[in-house]
Write a protein that binds this DNA or RNA. Structure first.
Length: 316
DNA sequence: TTCCAGGACATTT
DNA sequence: AAATGTCATGGA
């Protein structure tokens, strides 16, 4: 069993002042990370180039494009592509963002020990060893993405997200390529339902997204407040009270943004299809059957779901 | 053409 | 309380 380092900074400035090195935990697969990040050509929130990943962050109120690459087996290299060095605080924020995004703080050893002898999960954890739950650190982005993804196929969901970002987000150009910051609540709170419907949002989804933006803009909903909720159930209840957020959306966001390993979007269509295929069922499993199957994995439902999603055929 | 897609809500029984 | 209808688009 490995002890995870938590108190050390975990990153250091590289020889080049505009880059830093980020140490990796055990059981991290760069290959699986790239696989997930490459899953849709319509993804607009990052860009891939070979083994390098480019993402636009906001550091000290300014856009900052970073390039992530594999330095060696034990660390990542993060480079500010403008060649400018950053303050210690900005470097810390960059390292924290990538750790949060790529789930570098979780010790997977207990999950793997639990899965080892499991007939279903054992095979998945061996096949996709080092796969982590790729996150959506921004609560507003995670909520918008989840609402957009309700009841539509994923290519269309990516299309809608791209339209939202390109209509209300901030763009920078680098090497003739566009990089985007996701819109902020204040950018969406005053938008009309009709404006979003022109992007092919349904009237309902437009209302949901605008309503969530207004709640966050007015400080009635925040990632910090959800983090400080008493427990998982309290955070879930807070989300469920919001119009447009049902059980699937609440658990999806608790899984990918708040990073609760016990979050469980049990109604997820992709989960149903993955189980149908792996268990060779003629029909999709019932919710009751899924809960029974998941019972031994209590506390790690989110990881079980993410590994099951991984087993699905690629999108488009 | 019909059915389904990483659902939620409103209405009806 | 539980079943049914509605939203709305794209792909198989």
């Amino acid at each position: 069993m490995t002890i995870q380092e938590r108190d050390t900074p975990g990153f250091s400035s590289d020889e080049c002042p505009a880059s830093l090195r980020l140490s990796l935990p055990d059981a991290f697969s760069y290959r699986e990370t790239l696989h997930y990040l490459s899953r849709s050509p319509l993804e607009c929130m990052h860009r891939m180039d070979g083994d390098k990943v480019y993402k636009l962050l906001e550091l000290e109120h300014e856009p900052a494009l970073i390039e992530i690459s594999r330095m060696d087996g034990a660390s990542l290299r993060i480079r500010y592509v403008d060649g400018q060095s950053r303050s210690d605080e900005a470097q810390q924020a960059t390292a924290n963002y990538v750790r949060e995004w790529w789930d570098l703080r979780t010790n997977l050893a207990p999950f793997y020990r639990m899965a080892e002898a499991d007939p279903l999960l054992g095979g998945l954890t061996r096949e996709y060893y080092g796969l982590r739950i790729m996150g959506v650190p921004s609560l507003f982005e995670a909520l918008c993405w989840a609402v957009i993804g309700q009841q539509v196929n994923l290519p269309f969901a990516y299309t809608l997200k791209k339209r939202l970002v390109e209509a209300f987000g901030k763009r920078i150009l680098w090497n003739d390529q566009s990089f985007w910051l996701f819109p902020k609540p204040q950018d969406v709170a005053a938008v009309s339902v009709e404006a979003l419907m022109k992007l092919q949002f349904t009237g309902r989804k437009a209302e949901y997204v605008i309503g969530i933006a207004q709640l966050m803009l007015h400080g009635e909903l925040s990632k910090q407040a959800l983090r400080e909720a008493n427990d998982f159930a309290a955070a879930e209840q807070r989300l469920l009270a919001i119009r447009g957020i049902g059980p699937w959306t609440a658990n999806y966001v608790l899984m990918r943004c708040l990073r609760y390993p016990c979050a469980f979007p049990v109604g997820d269509a992709g989960l149903h299809n993955a189980l149908k295929a792996l268990l060779k069922l003629r029909r999709k499993p019932t919710e009751h059957e899924i809960r029974e199957l998941f019972a031994p994995w209590r506390g790690w439902e989110a990881y079980a779901v993410f590994y099951l999603w991984r087993s699905l055929a690629p999108i488009v």
